[in-house]
Design a protein around this nucleic acid. Structure first.
Length: 467
RNA sequence: GGCGUCGUGGCGGAGUGGUCACGCAGCGGACUGCAAAUCCGUGUACCCGAGUUCGAUUCUCGGCGACGCCUCCA
């Protein structure tokens, strides 16, 4: 059972062969912390969390690194605008990010290195690049990477230097030997935060931190490097140039890139201003819906963000939870669904197909329930839950989820203050039905329905849920 | 201009050289006091044109269209 992964470097699916047996070392580009996570960030977070979960499920030890960029131009600018120290700003958004991760069911990686804590390794790597002849100190004091010196430049993005120079929108900078050269170390201007270096006080450029931190934590040759499609060029291309030139190594075996979240067929992005933050959206949704939304399409394709898409994710989740409702769980029995699930996930993490396996299992479960086969139902429930866990969904009790209100966190669903009142109305309706007073019972049902509460009369009595 | 991704039924979204995705919505039926949930059944789907083939939605070429990267961006 091998796992096939689409490698952006070669453009095809390849069997995962880890450098160390049973151990995957994976680096994923994380956030620049000057604002809240939006749905685009959420997708990347969820996608690679799912990769991590599946690899562990498949028996690998996973060392997962997700960096935090806590020094760059935008952070400096934002901190100045707010009139607060940079560290106050970054700390705030780091905790916000962690809250968002919790809401999305995204586990903490093994390492979350911050750029500012790796200035030493960054400086050392830049020094090595200069030594090896790949970097130079420009007239204005910045240290630049000499792109032309690196033969493999463009291998990931499929670009040629000549093409890039031709119609490039890269700003012309007199200090650069080549317009495509990029900054490794940026000289501090007055009032800007800085660290000491052999080239004067300054700060790291954008790309070097990832090279330095991945090498420091995973070594100069590791298995998987991931991130959003938009990082492919120039960020990841530059990382390859830096690490390969500094360490004379292979660097990364498999590059993985997730597709964008679109809004009306346009990329959701900060610059377009068409973004929704995770916390904003989470207020109107039950927990896990956004994760389900992400899992509902393959990670490499685009997904369109809309109220309707979210609604559909909610429906599918509701179907799964409804099936599980009231069933005693028996663990450890696998049906054909488990094989289908594994086959789907082994094929480049095909989560839509994996979800289809879960939904098929829900049907089996419903059938067993209807047939009165409690044992069989329990086994299907156990199987469904153990597979769902690999995807990071169905983490709540069915009853809790179905009665949850939008905006509740995954960890501590608050008790709905209206629950007691709703229960009282349900009890009153049961009495009315017993007395065959259907006018009254229907009145109560309609009254609750107006509050988006759906009643279900089953053989075991009446239950309610939010619709 | 360069490079790249994509175009599947009402909607979302997998997949395949020749029987099945799956979910939502719709329709018919079962169940129900009526519903809801659930189950069963139900859809002339694969952008256009040419080619390869016994056979293409799936492979090749061309076209059209959408999007992305080439500047910060998950």
């Amino acid at each position: 059972m091998t796992i096939q992964i689409h490698n952006s470097l070669t453009g095809r699916k390849e069997a995962l062969v880890t450098l160390e047996p049973h151990h995957v070392r994976m680096y994923v580009c994380g956030m620049t912390v000057y604002d809240y996570c939006h749905v685009g960030h959420a997708r990347s977070l969820v996608v690679f969390d799912t990769v991590r979960r599946y690899l562990r499920h498949a028996g690998y030890r996973v060392t997962h690194v997700r960096n935090i960029t806590d020094i760059d131009d935008k952070i400096i600018q934002r901190a100045q605008e707010n009139g607060e120290p940079m560290s106050a700003l970054t700390e705030r958004f780091i905790s916000a990010m962690h809250e968002d991760c919790d809401a999305l069911g995204v586990e903490r990686p093994e390492h979350e290195p911050r750029a500012t804590e790796y200035i030493g390794p960054i400086v050392a790597m830049i020094a090595r690049l200069i030594e090896n002849g790949y970097a130079y100190v420009a007239r204005d004091g910045d240290v630049l990477y000499a792109v032309a010196k690196f033969a493999g430049y463009g291998q990931l993005s499929g670009k040629r230097l000549a093409d890039l120079r031709a119609g490039s929108r890269v700003e012309v900078n007199e200090a650069k030997r080549d317009p495509l050269d990029f900054v490794l170390w940026k000289r501090a201007k007055p009032g800007e935060p800085f660290w000491a270096s052999p080239w004067g006080d300054g700060r790291p450029g954008w790309h070097i931190e990832c090279s330095a931190m991945s090498v420091a934590l995973l070594g100069d040759h590791f298995d998987i490097h991931g991130g959003g499609m938009d990082l492919k060029f120039p960020h990841h291309e530059n990382e390859i140039a830096q690490t390969c030139a500094a360490c004379d190594s292979q660097f990364v075996n498999t590059w993985m890139h997730n597709g964008f979240v679109n809004v009306n067929a346009e990329k959701m992005s900060k610059s377009l201003g068409n973004f929704f933050t995770v916390r904003e959206v989470q207020k109107t949704l039950r927990p896990e819906v956004m994760r389900m939304f992400v899992l509902g399409s393959h990670y490499r394709g685009p997904i369109n963000y809309s109220h309707d898409s979210l609604q559909q994710a909610d429906s599918a989740l509701e179907r799964l939870y409804t099936a599980l409702r009231g069933v005693v769980v028996e663990w450890g029995v696998a049906s054909v669904a488990t094989a289908r699930f594994a086959e789907a996930m082994n094929d480049d993490f095909n989560t839509p197909e994996a979800l289809a396996a879960l939904l098929a299992l829900a049907r089996d479960l419903n059938v067993a329930k209807a047939a009165g086969d409690a044992r069989q139902a329990s086994q299907f429930a156990g199987e469904l839950l153990s597979l769902a866990k690999v995807l990071g969904i169905l983490s709540l009790e069915a009853e809790v989820w179905l009665k949850a209100l939008p905006g509740q966190s995954l960890d501590a669903p608050s008790v709905d203050p209206a629950a007691a009142e709703i229960d009282a109305l349900v009890t009153a309706r049961i009495a009315a039905r017993k007395a065959k007073n259907f006018v009254e019972s229907d009145r109560i049902r309609d009254q609750l329905l107006a509050r988006n509460i759906v009643l279900e009369d089953g053989p075991q009595g009446t239950t309610w849920r939010y619709g």
